[in-house]
Amino acid sequence: MNAAQEISPVNSSPRRPVDSLDTPVRVSPEGPAPVVAAEPPKLTVKNLDAWYGSNHALHGVNLTVPPRSVMAAIGPSGCGKSTFLRCLNRMHELIPGARAEGTLLIDGQDLLSRDVDPVTLRRRVGMVFQRPNPFPTMSIRDNVAAGLKLNGIPGNHHEIVERTLRQSALWDEVKDRLDASALSLSGGQQQRLCIARALAVQPEVLLMDEPASALDPIATAKIEDLIHELKERYTIVIVTHNMQQAGRVSDQTAFFYMGDLIEVGPTEKIFTNPSEKRTEDYVTGKFG
């Protein structure tokens, strides 16, 4: 027996040794802390409320969007995500009886202040809509240049048209027919044309309201690929009903429900381990 006690079992378990060889470790159940960019946010939204008449559609939303990143807003119909998006370039107030209150800062400057001209704001914050809406009577070229002309922006429009069509990944497909009608393009091409039109006035922020919901999967993939490229230059906020799309394109995801911002966080976290039960229920399909 004495001799036996001197011999210890061979390799009881590589993972849980009987004789602990483990070096003491600091256990961090949450994993490494995310690397926080030192850069100040591009967009800061503080206590944003919005109404349609007496209907209080958005309740005190607070969030920030870092520069050159994509934020996706998700949530069921009527949750306030589109209202939120439309507040960001003051399109919300175009609806009769609609109003918004709160602070919206771009690079620290308040853009909801009454001193700011909405037209100037919309040059800095461009918008792309759900259905491609090129100007039907205009050529491809004129569609892109429309915003420049409207804003009285001087300069070589041809150069800007080419640059923005390249940025929106449409140039190679339309360079030989710039004077053709915008309606000669496919739905996906029309949507990229609308993105080019929004980019021509050199905005800083690009808002996208379900930009691919009317498109087939291939055209959708092209838009999503484009979003990845545009992110290098622009700050993007996208509203989408397609949660997989939010997962594919965004860095952060904001979940809205019944006018409240329920949760905002890194997209990976929202789709693997959200903090709020309502977010969990929504992304796993337990609503209604």
Partner: peptide, 19 residues
């Protein structure tokens, strides 16, 4: 249940690595 990995502490990035 929790979404946290309790296996192999310290194997994710530098956090929790042996001191």
């Amino acid at each position: 249940v929790r979404g946290t990995d309790v296996r192999h502490p310290g194997s994710r990035g530098g956090e929790g690595a042996p001191v």
